[in-house]
C-alpha cells in the first residue's frame, strides 16, 4: 500500500445535522434526502412534516434523528403549518431561521395540494420540498397522483395497473409565479444542496421537487437506490431543471440519453409491462422532455 494519501475534495458540506439511527427502510431515498437537506440548511431550520414516511423515519423524541425542531401536523397541512411557523418567526424578528416544509408526494400532489397552493400563492417565506417516491409508501404502497404510468401498487394491481401520466407538480407550482422552483434528485446531492442553499438566500416561497426512490415500494434492492435514481435522470424520465423568476434552465443535460426501458426494467413495480407499454412510456418521456426544452428555449436565459 502506498504511503502517499490521495487528497479528496469534499463536494458536500462536512457538517452532519442528522444523526444515524433513524427508522427508514434500508436504501431509503428519502432518508438520504433529509441528510443532504440539513447539510445544506444547517441547524437553524424548523421542519414542518405532515403524515408521510418522514413522520416515522425521524423516530420518537428524544431518539429522533433530524437534530432540528420538527412540527408534525395533519396529512393535508404541511404548507399551512409552515405558513404559521414562518409568519411567527417574522413577527418575532427571527429572520435567520429557515422554515422547511417536507412532505411526500401524497401529501403534496393529492391531499396537501390545496394548502400548498394557498401558501405559495401568498408567497410565504419557506422552502417546500416534496420527496417524491411515487406512491403512498407509509401506508403500504398505494398509488398517488405521482405514480407513473404502468406502475404496480396495491391499489393499482397488475391486472389493472396505473394508467395515465403522473401529475406535473412543477408546472402547477410554476403557475403560482413564485421566485424559485426546481427539481432535484438524490443521485445528484451536490445539485440538490446547491439548490437548497440558493433557495435559502431567496425571500418568498421556494419549491423543490425531489426524486427519492423507495426500494420497498419500487421493488428493487436497497443497494440500487442511487443507481435507479440516476437512471431516472439519465433516461430523461426525471429531468433536473429550475425555474427562477419564470426563467427556465435545464441544469443537467444528458449527452447519451439511455432508453427508458433500462430504468423501468431495474424495478419490480414495472415488471409486468409488455414491450408496447415500454415504447409508449418512452414516447411520453420524449414528448415531456421536448416540451421542457421548448420551455427553456422560450423562457430561458437566452430567450
Amino acid at each position: 500500500m502506498s504511503a502517499e494519501t490521495k487528497k479528496v475534495r469534499l463536494t458536500l458540506p462536512e457538517n452532519e445535522v442528522m444523526s444515524p439511527g433513524h427508522l427508514a427502510c434500508q436504501g431509503c431515498g428519502a432518508s438520504m434526502a433529509m441528510r443532504y437537506a440539513l447539510k445544506a440548511l444547517g441547524r437553524k431550520t424548523i421542519l414542518s412534516v405532515p403524515a408521510c414516511c418522514w413522520a416515522v423515519i425521524d423516530g420518537p423524541f428524544p431518539y429522533s434523528a433530524v437534530g432540528v425542531p420538527l412540527q408534525q401536523s395533519a396529512f393535508e397541512a404541511a404548507a399551512a403549518t409552515a405558513s404559521g411557523i414562518t409568519n411567527a418567526l417574522k413577527s418575532l424578528g427571527k429572520d435567520d431561521i429557515t422554515t422547511l416544509a417536507w412532505a411526500g408526494d401524497g401529501g403534496t400532489f393529492d391531499i396537501g395540494l390545496q394548502a400548498l397552493s394557498g401558501a405559495v400563492e401568498r408567497n410565504e417565506n419557506m422552502i417546500y420540498v416534496v420527496y417524491d417516491n411515487e406512491a403512498y409508501m407509509n401506508t403500504g404502497i398505494q398509488r398517488s397522483s405521482s405514480t407513473p404510468h404502468g406502475a404496480w401498487t396495491t391499489t393499482t394491481p397488475v391486472k389493472h395497473y396505473r394508467k395515465g401520466q403522473k401529475k406535473n407538480i412543477m408546472e402547477i407550482i410554476v403557475a403560482h409565479h413564485i421566485p424559485y422552483c426546481a427539481t432535484a434528485n438524490i443521485a445528484y446531492p451536490e445539485d440538490f444542496i446547491k439548490k437548497l442553499q440558493k433557495a435559502k438566500s431567496i425571500k418568498g416561497a421556494k419549491f423543490i421537487h425531489l426524486f427519492a426512490p423507495c426500494p420497498t415500494g419500487w421493488k428493487h434492492g436497497p443497494d440500487k437506490t442511487v443507481k435507479i435514481a440516476r437512471l431516472a435522470t439519465e433516461t430523461n424520465t426525471f429531468p433536473i431543471y429550475e425555474v427562477e423568476n419564470g426563467v427556465y434552465k435545464i441544469n443537467k443535460k444528458i449527452k447519451n440519453v439511455k432508453p427508458v426501458a433500462e430504468y423501468l426494467r431495474a424495478q419490480g413495480r414495472f415488471r409486468h409491462l409488455p414491450e408496447d407499454e415500454l415504447e409508449y412510456i418512452q414516447s411520453m418521456v420524449n414528448k415531456s422532455y421536448k416540451r421542457l426544452e421548448k420551455l427553456e428555449a422560450a423562457f430561458g436565459e437566452s430567450a
Binding site: 403500504g140 397522483s145 394491481p157
Partner: peptide, 22 residues
C-alpha cells in the same frame, strides 16, 4: 379493505377510485 376491493373488482365488476383525500 380498499386494497382487496381493488384486486377483486376486475373479477366481480365495479369501480374503485382512489381519491385525492377523504
Amino acid at each position: 379493505v380498499v386494497e382487496r376491493f381493488a384486486s377483486r373488482i376486475p373479477i366481480v365488476g365495479g369501480v374503485f377510485i382512489q381519491m385525492e383525500d377523504e
